[in-house]
């Protein structure tokens, strides 16, 4: 792609990633969440793919799939945290620690430190979706190329 596209892509990618991170971070307060934020962040990979071509992203393939594996493992481990009571029990909600504050009842301004394991799971799923979608896009881009298939 042309220099214009590349330059704008360089500027936009951090913005897109930050917006994805925002959507994930506020998933338990505002519309959004792990999947949506992860998909937004993965669109940064798509932009890179369009701007720079698949071969230059070849080295991203392995980190992205590792990121996906780790996100999946983190999600299951978070679910396993509650196994003292039941699987997927929200252990941290209302416990007072990280994300453990009780949410006010009824309409409120939203407090980041609520939700228990929900925000953590949002992050796990966000990384998982970013890694998964990114890896799929890179794989499709690399397929049939000169130096890889």
């Amino acid at each position: 792609m042309s220099v214009v596209v590349r330059t704008i892509a360089r500027i936009l990618v951090p913005v897109i990633l930050a917006f994805g991170g925002y959507v994930i971070l506020h998933g338990h307060l505002t519309p959004g969440g792990g999947f949506q934020g992860g998909a937004v962040a993965a669109s940064a990979v798509a932009l890179l793919l369009v701007a720079f071509g698949a071969p230059s992203l070849k080295k991203l393939k392995s980190p992205l799939s590792v990121l996906e594996d780790l996100g999946g493992i983190a999600f299951v481990v978070l679910a396993f945290l509650g196994i003292g009571t039941t699987f997927f029990f929200n252990l941290l909600a209302g416990s007072g620690g990280l994300f453990g504050a009780a949410s006010p009842i009824g309409p409120n301004a939203g407090f980041l430190s609520t939700g228990g394991t929900v925000p953590l799971m949002n992050w796990a799923v966000g990384f998982k979706v970013l890694g998964g979608l990114g890896a799929v896009m890179v794989l499709f881009g690399l397929f049939g190329g000169d130096d890889d298939r």
Binding site: N90, A93, V125
Partner: peptide, 25 residues
Amino acid sequence: TEAATSNVVTAIVFDYRGYDTLGEA
């Protein structure tokens, strides 16, 4: 009260029906 989450949909996705989300992941 139960999930300490103001976004009800997220509470369902990750708490009440978290197992579905695991399947989806």
